[in-house]
Amino acid sequence: MPSLTRRSLLALGALTGASLLVCGCTDEEGPAAEARQREDADRPVRAKAVADTDRLLAGYDAAAASAGDRAEQVKALRAEVAEHRAALATGLPDGGTATSGAPAASGTPSASGSGGPVGSVAQLAAAERLTAQARLAQLAGASPELAKLLAVVAASGALHAAALGDRTPVAVPGDGTASPSASASGSGQASPSPSASPSASASASASAKPVPLPAPMATALQTALSAEHAAVYGYGVVGARIPGPGRAEAHSVFADHQSQRDTWQRRLAAGSATPTAAAAGYQLPFPVNSPETARQLAAHIEVQLTGVYAGLVAATTGELRQTAATALREAALNARRWGGDLTAFPGLPAAGASASPSPSPSAS
């Protein structure tokens, strides 16, 4: 057996040390490297969102001079937009200050719906709506957590637009773009893109096999379905306690929640999952025995749904993510309609806040 010389021992030691160093770095740095990769992929999305927000803040500053008796409202909404900017700029060099002078991209509101400078509260309202549309167009390219933040901020923007008097629905991007002209449609839906002939589409769907949903996505959808079951029950109580025009409004929202419940049931069934059934009865979070407490229950239900749908945005991708973002926005608008108390980030827990109970299945 050949003897090991001092040189061979040194060479073996160097090789072994190099192997250990490589393995050690891989094991230790793997999660951190993955996090950095996600952060790097999100950076252009964040930079674009911050640039949009800077233009919106400039619009607030321009509109403040002519706001008149709405000056305090404009000031309060601007403060929330500043909070949005701080959250969106997380991880950007120098807090995203380099993006403030970036030119407006196509489909991005620089100010008013016509593309001109903001000079009135009405133009500021349109700018809020168009900025919300731009946020939705960025969902597909964002990581789950950033997508959740974008959807939440878009919902807040829709609330701002409505508070400032804009009644045009936020357009839902159908192909990854949010065009200001899409808002001219009363439905708030983007125009459908050309598709294959009906016969070809029917043939493709008939031959397609159901694709099982990933477990995290299925779980989030089941959570959303359970929340809609509870909302349908709750609105039955609301409608029975509110008289006059308020009852018709409650019945309309009740029908919307039934429709959303049915949508989630179909999605789960199409993904080879068994939809969660409604409970036989639900325990209300507080006694509801007057029109006032009925409105409080409606607001409570919608505020709770914003959190459910923020989670669903993070758990889904593609068109389903857009559907979840739309549900989040509608829940926020409904919550405000009923007098709900919403933060600058509807759907995200406030610092130090504890979870509020929702209508829950009653013990049998």
Rank of each mutant, 00 (worst) to 15 (best):
L221D: 04
V153T: 15
G186N: 08
D341F: 01
D52R: 13
P173M: 07
G91M: 10
A63R: 09
G239R: 15
L342D: 02
A327Y: 06
G91P: 08
V121Y: 06
A314S: 13
V237A: 07
P210T: 10
P214C: 12
Q260D: 06
A344V: 12
Q322W: 00
A200M: 14
E228K: 10
P173Y: 04
N334E: 04
Q265K: 12
P243M: 09
S207E: 06
Q283S: 15
S201G: 00
S183Q: 10
D166N: 08
N289G: 11
A200H: 09
E249S: 15
S143Q: 12
S290G: 06
V45K: 05
A162Q: 13
A299Y: 04
P359L: 07
S110E: 12
P357I: 00
A344W: 07
P245G: 09
G95I: 08
H300Q: 12
A111G: 15
V211Y: 00
K148Q: 14
G24V: 15
T97Q: 14
P212N: 03
P173C: 05
A33G: 05
E302L: 10
V121M: 04
V308P: 08
H300W: 13
P31L: 04
G340T: 10
A87F: 08
T274L: 02
G165S: 02
A240H: 05
R85Y: 03
L10W: 09
E39F: 03
R267Q: 08
G244T: 07
L297S: 02
A14M: 14
A162K: 10
R241T: 09
Q322N: 05
T343C: 06
R267C: 00
Q37Y: 12
S226V: 06
G281M: 04
S8I: 06
R266N: 05
T274P: 01
A255E: 15
H300S: 13
V153N: 03
P357W: 02
K148H: 00
R266P: 00
A79K: 03
G59Q: 14
L57S: 06
G281F: 02
A134M: 04
P212Y: 02
A230Q: 13
A278C: 02
V118T: 14
A62P: 12
S272C: 08
K48D: 13
L57F: 07
P349Y: 11
A62I: 08
A344T: 05
G107L: 04
A208E: 06
S203N: 07
S252Y: 09
R46P: 01
F345K: 01
P109A: 14
G157A: 05
T274D: 10
A224Y: 11
P192R: 10
T343H: 04
T263S: 08
A82T: 12
A204G: 00
R329W: 01
G281K: 08
V74A: 11
T26M: 05
P31W: 01
A314M: 05
E128I: 03
S207Y: 00
E29T: 01
G339L: 06
C23S: 11
S195L: 03
F286S: 13
P349L: 14
A76E: 11
S187L: 10
A104K: 02
R55S: 12
A142L: 09
S205C: 01
R261W: 00
S143Y: 11
P144R: 09
V50Q: 03
V172T: 11
L213K: 06
A47G: 06
G239V: 11
L9Q: 11
G347Y: 07
L77G: 10
P216Y: 13
L146E: 01
G174R: 05
S364D: 14
L221R: 09
P2L: 10
T316V: 07
Y282K: 08
A142N: 03
